[in-house]
Design a protein around this nucleic acid. Structure first.
Length: 442
DNA sequence: GTTGAGCGTT
């Protein structure tokens, strides 16, 4: 993030130190766009650190060299870590992500604006942004109960250029107070592939090429079977999985059929290719944080991979949280981040839909070499990561249904082909059932 | 007391 380049973390500050005080202090080095003192959200007690954002990154060097005493405490200034960095340094390949982020893969023309002063009106909001282009929509969010401003809002433009212009700067001076702009997260998981940040997230496995899939693979037809995506976005209770798979890429050819229509898992499909008989088994399921079917014998392979559950929040970095990670079985996938990357471009990082786990396999990821019997092994305890769907019952039940039976919630009787030893999960047996043709051929 | 927090409605 550009703004992070000029942002410093200030640690060890006094509990008495305010934003104002910090600003006064650091103003001595150059223009300060913003200071913030972090407090406990509940108690309001200062946590002893904060951030300062300078207008000009070049002053950082001086700031970093000096020692600083504010309100009687010697504080420590360090470069602020981006969230990506916090999760695990990725040898600085972040920069390359840029071309994706700003570029043409973005569909959303909506901007999230954070840090709004409570006094700001929608008029003021709009007026400011109109200088960047045609504003088509403005919204300042209020708490539904208290009716108090929540401090953020949205602004929509009619052109991507305008959006780009706005995003060129992360901080905007709106009637005296700095606000922060970011691309809005697409609210519905399908639209958009809008996630920026390209999730080069990890893996380093040529995320670029995935992006390609991410973008082009979008198969609109999948929308047809989804009612309102909004609806599905909510918990997966009961209804089973919405067809996350919006993807369905490769639809034909890859056996991604939507054989499970209605039932949810739909599009997953398999890749059956290399592993006849496993037809149904498909990485990712696109389901949120589904742990992959790991081969228990391969520790470290990333079941939940990616950030199952996503640490803290994905705001800010908007990293795709690795839905649909596959990584099952094979260590070589292990990285699971492979999954993350694969989904990367499209994962919204937020929406349970979207982010289908396209069967990476078959796309050159080296087979999943997983060992066959492993699937469904009850010991996997798979669900692990699934913080979104508690219970993680996915596993347990044999997917891959060799019968090509696409029935979800089938009972054990479907068994023959099921690898799963038990039917723990609410999702019953053999989902994945996918495209029978592959599963059965042979 | 040392790396935040925020994503809707039509």
């Amino acid at each position: 993030m550009d703004s992070d380049q000029a942002k410093l973390f200030i640690g060890g500050i006094s509990w008495e130190t305010s934003e104002e005080r910090m600003k006064e202090y650091f103003q001595g080095y150059g223009d300060v766009l913003q200071t913030v003192v972090m407090r406990d959200k509940i108690t309001g007690k200062p946590r002893g650190f904060g951030f300062v954002v300078f207008a000009d990154p070049s002053v950082l060097d001086r700031v970093l060299q000096d020692t600083h005493v504010i309100d009687g405490r010697t504080v420590e200034a360090k470069r602020a870590l981006s969230r990506e960095e916090q999760q695990g340094p990725k040898s600085g390949n972040m920069g390359s992500a840029r071309s994706f982020g700003g570029g043409g893969n973005t569909k959303t023309k909506k901007i999230f604006v954070g840090g709004l002063p409570p006094t700001l009106t929608e008029d003021g909001f709009r007026t400011y942004f109109e200088t960047y282009g045609n504003v088509t929509d403005v919204a300042i969010m209020f708490d539904q109960q208290t009716n108090r401003p929540r401090g953020f809002g949205f602004i929509s433009f009619d052109s991507e250029d305008a959006v780009d212009r706005v995003l060129h700067k992360t901080y905007h001076d709106l009637s005296g107070k700095q606000v922060e702009v970011k691309r809005a997260l697409p609210k519905d998981g399908n639209s958009g592939f809008g996630g920026r940040s390209t999730g080069n997230g990890g893996s380093g496995m040529g995320g670029g090429s995935y992006q390609g899939y991410g973008a082009s693979g979008d198969n609109p037809s999948s929308y047809d079977r989804m009612d309102t995506s909004r609806y599905m976005q909510s918990q997966n209770t009961g209804g089973g999985y919405p067809s996350y798979g919006s993807s369905g890429y490769g639809t034909a050819g890859y056996g991604y059929g939507s054989s499970n229509n209605g039932m949810g898992y739909g599009a997953y499909g398999s890749y059956g290719g290399a592993n006849p008989g496993y037809g149904g088994v498909n990485p990712g399921y696109g389901s949120p944080a589904v742990a992959a079917f790991g081969n228990p014998n391969v520790p470290g392979t990333g079941y939940g991979s990616g950030q199952a559950g996503g640490p803290r929040s994905s705001w800010g970095s908007q990293i795709p949280s690795g839905y649909g990670n596959m990584g099952y079985g094979n260590a070589s996938w292990g990285a699971s981040s492979a999954g993350g990357a694969a989904n990367g471009g499209s994962a919204t990082g937020q929406s349970p839909t979207g982010a289908t786990g396209y069967g990476n396999q078959g796309y050159g990821y080296g087979g999943y070499g997983g060992n066959d019997g492993a699937y469904g092994n009850p010991s996997i305890g798979g669900g692990a990561s699934g913080d979104m769907q508690s219970g993680g019952g996915y596993m347990g039940s044999g997917y891959g249904d060799a019968n090509g039976n696409s029935t979800l919630r089938s009972d054990t009787s479907q068994g023959s082909g099921n690898y799963g030893a038990q039917q723990n999960g609410p999702y019953g047996g053999g989902y994945g059932g996918a495209p029978s043709r592959q599963a059965q051929q042979h």
